[in-house]
Design a protein around this nucleic acid. Structure first.
Lengths: 189, 189
DNA sequence: TACCTCATGTAAAGCGTTACATGATTCG
DNA sequence: CGAATCATGTAACGCTTTACATGAGGTA
């Protein structure tokens, strides 16, 4: 599950953090490409504790409910690192890039060469995706639609626009990865 | 559920279609932003039939398994149309655009003014999203990270790049919607 | 007074993926 | 001969969302 690694990554970046705070930071930062609810987070923290990846301290608060603050363990850091260095498998889908960005989010603790290898793998994938996508150019869709259909022309207009959007998005991804590789190669990362 | 509307839309575009064919067209066309497995499709078709949105005929095939071919009913067209004219609610997430494109995919049967209204609603949403996103500019993330952390600099470099990607993606969406609106206004749609 | 934030959890229901079950034809 | 395609379905498992349960303090 992704959630457990996201939690490990976030706890590592800020020791002594509560489940409630984790929910809030997920909503307001990674939230744009990864989200989780409190009813997922609390059991996940329990699981991470059972596995020995985190420890927690109960903070008694006067008046209101106690909070549990979590800190990552050495074993947890190992677990996180093994996820971060595992090669990502890309699905042929618009959503694949979200997972790509999510893993990258926590790769600040990974050495430069591994980060670059990760980015280059992404570049390769999206270049292949672009080729396959360009080659197809709505042939399947044009073949599927019943030409006698009243609105077949209107559908094809819409699909042509959508096709061009997806192409532009793939191009954006490719160009972004390229420029990110260059900048990490040159900056002292 | 989205799947039922996607199936209705696809059956309408090509009457006398089987579940297996629907799976194949979903994989190869909408598949990039919407996917479904056969174990979802078969029960969904059963449901659509129970609701009276589709009818089916059993085609006996010599040698191999019979296939059921589905055709949309008047009631089904009404149901599809009501989904297509329902205003879409946007979530604050990267995935929201997939739903936006998916609904648009089947809007070839909707009148020009409604399609334009739909696109304009999208334009408004992503413009707002851009403003809120730009205003924040990693302040939450910078505040969250423990500055004493060894790798805090490296994390911030990555996050800065990711931030710029998301901004570019939002810009792409805005520009694509704008140009699609213009083209539909001018083409005879 | 009512809603929002902080704070932690469980339970039920819905949705999605993978595995199971069966079987013929076609292509390499 | 084995793998892929065509063809339909059910069952088990896992993840996600929504509802339930409780409760204090601050703000409008």
């Amino acid at each position: 599950m992704l959630l457990q690694y996201v939690l490990l990554g976030l706890i590592k970046l800020r020791p002594s953090v509560s489940g409630y705070e984790l929910k809030s930071i997920i909503d307001r930062s990674t939230g744009y490409f990864f989200s989780a609810s409190l009813s997922q987070i609390y059991p996940a923290l329990k699981y991470l504790h059972a596995k020995g990846f985190v420890t927690y301290k109960e903070e008694p608060l006067t008046g209101r409910q106690d909070r549990k603050v979590y800190t990552i363990t050495g074993k947890g850091i190992e677990e996180l690192q093994s996820w971060l260095t595992e090669p990502l498998e890309f699905a042929f889908s618009m959503m694949s890039f979200q997972k790509f960005l999510l893993q990258l989010t926590f790769m600040g603790s990974v050495d430069k060469e591994r980060v670059l290898a990760y980015l280059r793998a992404g570049l390769e994938h999206y270049s292949r995706e672009k080729n396959e996508f360009t080659a197809e150019n709505l042939s399947v869709e044009k073949n599927y639609i019943d030409k006698d259909q009243e609105d077949s022309k209107k559908h094809l207009i819409i699909w042509q626009h959508e096709f061009e959007y997806i192409l532009q998005e793939i191009n954006l991804r490719i160009n972004w990865i390229k420029s990110t590789i260059e900048s990490i190669e040159n900056e002292n990362f």
